[in-house]
Amino acid sequence: MRLGLVIDLDVCVGCHACAVSCKQWNASGTTGPLTDYQPFGAEPSGVWFNRIRHFEVGTYPNNKTVNFPMSCMHCEDADCVTVCPTGASYKRAEDGIVLVDQDKCMGCNYCSWACPYGARELDRESGTMKKCTLCVDRIYDQAIPEAERQPSCVLTCPAHARMFGDFDDPNSEVSKVVREREGYVLMPELGYNPTNHYLPPRKHKPIPTDIGADKAGLAGKLKQFVNRMVKR
């Protein structure tokens, strides 16, 4: 098995609900707490597994805002695991999930240097490295209904921009949608072979706008006036 996420950039509305629900679930999960520093102070900061960035793609007027959620990609060739001197970081053979054993980590930060995607954040309170667990404490939980055995972010997303599944199975939802929508991975040139895929925005017909209409010069204005008079 190779478990991971697909993120649909076409429908993500950038509401940060996935990040908030991730924080809520994982604060009491296996790698919790996710410490906050000055949560109500002047410089609020803290540990998050999931962060949403916002990009502008293209130039005006052919531009578009793309909301960009990012968490651990559970890479196949994860250098974060290779470089870890203590063995705290590991990749599970059975499902490919990359985890940090909080009892072994010495907080050297080296793995965070090796991760290109900014998926690892040190918790200054516990002195250990923290990262997305793909809700490993939820997806196998027999006590909750089967439909809910998914990462918290996937269940929460109001736009259904997140999908969870097994990339090793060519007929899984995630494999199919990556095939059909030309899903891609980030920074393939670095060779980490990430599991998480992103679906590009669909190509829509441009929505006509009235840009330029009220910018008509004196001659244009005169013409509009005459037209209106003639119509009457």
Binding site: H16, Q38, R51, R53, F55, V57, S112, M187, P188
Partner: peptide, 22 residues
């Protein structure tokens, strides 16, 4: 290459955090 939009100019609008992060 970081965002996958290789055929257009890309610009960050918002990094998604209030203050600094780790």
């Amino acid at each position: 290459t970081a965002t996958g939009f290789t055929r257009a100019q890309v610009k960050l609008l918002d990094a998604g955090h209030t203050h600094g992060t780790f």
